[in-house]
């Protein structure tokens, strides 16, 4: 037991590497927020464009969405970071991770927003248009408020799942929690930093997961 505590909860090691984990925590939070904002923003934009029903544009959107839903995020990150330089496009690990996860979240959230828009009954469009509201006004004041209500629980869950992927940034040397933890572990020869890192992730994501659960029960009556 002492041996276990020495390995995983070593106070000395904890104190020494605490600042590094905090640095990682801050970077992970920053990266995660950037992904959520970019991903959801882009997803909503694509869904709105899709609601204009331009045939060619819609086909392109569907293909892009499918690709980013089908490819593993780690594969996309590695493509961006290791493969794109051959085409003369270099980016930092941070940019590659942010861009990849944002595109994946955009793809998933476009589908969710679009499904939400479709779920709003045709009569709502007709009623709004019959009172003289334009297409944009109908979307903004009548359709989206109803669609968003319907889509909040799946969006939150999807955003959490994808934002957790910030840990994948460790593969391309982003100094986020996992990188800090594994580096500290190999320097100290002790797995305590991994414990710290695990705790840091729980502190960051557990509240969001519980919030998502609360949202789900709150919106359950809509189904």
């Amino acid at each position: 037991m002492d041996n276990f505590l020495f390995s995983f909860f070593n106070l000395d090691v904890m104190v020494r590497y605490f600042p590094a984990i905090v640095d990682g925590f801050i970077l992970t939070t920053y990266l995660g927020l950037a992904v959520v904002l970019t991903g959801l923003g882009l997803g909503l934009t694509l869904a709105l464009i899709r609601s204009l029903r331009w045939r060619v544009v819609n086909v392109l959107i569907v293909i892009a969405v499918d690709v980013f839903r089908a490819l593993p995020p780690l594969v996309i990150i590695i493509l961006f970071y290791f493969a794109l330089p051959s085409a003369g496009v270099t980016m930092t690990g941070f940019t590659a991770t942010w861009l990849s996860l944002s595109l994946v979240l955009a793809a998933f959230s476009e589908e969710i927003f679009w499904a939400g828009i479709l779920a709003v009954q045709k009569g709502q469009w007709e009623a709004a248009r019959s009172t003289g509201l334009g297409l944009g006004q109908t979307l903004a004041y009548v359709v989206l408020p109803q669609a968003v209500r319907l889509t909040i629980p799946p969006l939150v869950n999807r955003a959490i799942a994808i934002t957790k992927g910030t840990a994948l940034g460790s593969v391309v040397a982003v100094q986020e929690i996992l990188t800090q933890a594994t580096t500290a572990q190999s320097f100290s020869g002790n797995p305590t930093p991994l414990t710290l890192g695990a705790l840091a992730y729980l502190i960051l994501f557990l509240p969001v997961v519980i919030f998502g659960r609360w949202l789900e029960t709150r919106f359950a009556w809509r189904r």
């Binding site: 009569g123 007709e126 009623a127 019959s130 009172t131 003289g132 109803q146």
Partner: peptide, 16 residues
């Protein structure tokens, strides 16, 4: 369209 009011079979009120 503002000069032409329309009333629908299924009301189509905005639920929100």
């Amino acid at each position: 369209r503002q000069r032409i009011g329309m009333v629908f079979q299924s009301f189509n009120l905005y639920p929100h």
